[in-house]
Amino acid sequence: MRPASVSPSSVVRFVVLGDSLSEGVGDRVGEGWRGWAALLAEGLRPGGEGLAFTNLAVSGAQSRDVAETQLPAALALRPQLASVVVGVNDTLRRTFAIGPFARRLDRVCAELTAAGSVLLTACLPDPGRMLGLPAPLARPLARRQRAVNAVVHALSTRYGAVHLHLADPAWTADRSLWSADRLHPGERGHRALAVAFHRLLRDRGLAHGTPPSPDPEQPAPTRADALLWLATAGTAWVVRRCGDLLPQLLLLAAAEVRHSAAGSRARLDARAEHALTRALAATMRE
């Protein structure tokens, strides 16, 4: 069942679930983050009035955090609009498996939709490509992100979500949209996300205010900014990942090299596709 349109005269309750992308990382205002969701919220109602906006997204959140912690808090707020954008952090963990991810995301979408929420979703770029990792390291991450995006696409269709294709080249190829860390949008990127979601919501009769401005107030990060991030915060980010993902990723990279040398890399793609097919079939039975 698809929820009804939001009336221009009604109070709009907009709740955001997810990770650092939705928390606003990359769009700093003062001492905190703003981000695309806050920019979008201002354009949902004329003058921004009659709006109840709550951002539950937390940096580092995985699908388990969204399902177990953020979902109950969101349901208690009875939102008409609920953004659910998650998955990259799942792919960056050694425990990643597409089956549990699909079940958790299906539960989140099902419960929010049953409560009367219109969902906002997005597929996400491949982190290995965004970081410019060597091919043997990047391919396993790309395979995981493709599976996550396939699940997001399927569930977005099932639950009538307002969906944005952030994995498309139009988003990933424009480096000016991204912050110095290469993983999060910069201010221009967050504004572009807000504008794109506002357009989709307006077409569905769900946004009645002025669209967010696409023009950034701060300059785009330079190459020097990116190098500085890698030398400071980026080093800490890599260290945190080394204890969890890196050992497994190196094993996956070794498998990539072996299969490439043997001309059998298609077997790895076939295994991932089989796991994805089973995951999607399991959510259809539930």
Rank of each mutant, 00 (worst) to 15 (best):
P169K: 11
H163L: 12
G160A: 06
V162E: 09
T157Y: 05
H153W: 12
A167G: 12
A161M: 05
T172Y: 05
A154H: 14
G160E: 08
S156P: 06
N149R: 01
W171K: 10
A147Y: 04
R158Y: 01
A173V: 07
S156G: 15
A173I: 01
G160L: 12
R158E: 14
D174G: 05
Y159L: 03
R146Q: 13
W171T: 00
Y159C: 06
S156H: 02
V162K: 06
G160T: 06
A167P: 00
V148K: 07
S176Q: 14
V162N: 03
A161G: 04
V148I: 14
A150K: 05
S176T: 15
H163E: 12
W171G: 07
A167L: 11
V152S: 02
W171I: 04
A154N: 01
L166G: 14
T172E: 04
S156E: 03
A167N: 15
A147K: 06
D174M: 10
D168Y: 06
A161D: 03
A150E: 13
A154P: 00
W171A: 07
A173H: 14
A150H: 01
R158A: 13
L155I: 13
R146K: 13
P169V: 12
A173L: 10
V152L: 09
A173Q: 14
L164R: 03
A147I: 04
A147G: 14
L164M: 07
H165V: 13
L166M: 14
A167C: 11
W178K: 11
S156C: 03
G160D: 05
L164C: 02
R175A: 14
Y159F: 15
A170S: 13
R146F: 02
A167T: 05
A161N: 03
A170W: 04
H165Q: 12
V148H: 05
R175F: 00
N149F: 02
G160F: 10
W171Y: 13
H163G: 01
Y159Q: 05
V148S: 03
G160Y: 10
H153D: 13
T172Q: 08
A170K: 11
L166W: 10
L164E: 05
T172N: 04
H163C: 08
V162C: 15
R175V: 10
S176M: 09
A167D: 15
D168V: 03
H163M: 11
V148W: 04
V152D: 09
R175G: 00
R175D: 09
R158N: 07
T172D: 02
Y159E: 09
H165C: 01
A170H: 11
H153T: 11
A170C: 06
L177V: 09
V151Y: 08
A154K: 10
A147W: 02
V152H: 03
R146V: 02
W178I: 07
S156Y: 01
P169S: 10
D174F: 08
V148Y: 06
H165R: 15
A161F: 08
L177R: 14
H165W: 13
D168C: 00
H153S: 10
A150D: 11
R158Q: 12
L177M: 10
W178V: 10
A173D: 15
D174R: 15
S156W: 01
T172K: 10
P169Q: 11
A150T: 02
L164T: 06
A173K: 13
L164F: 04
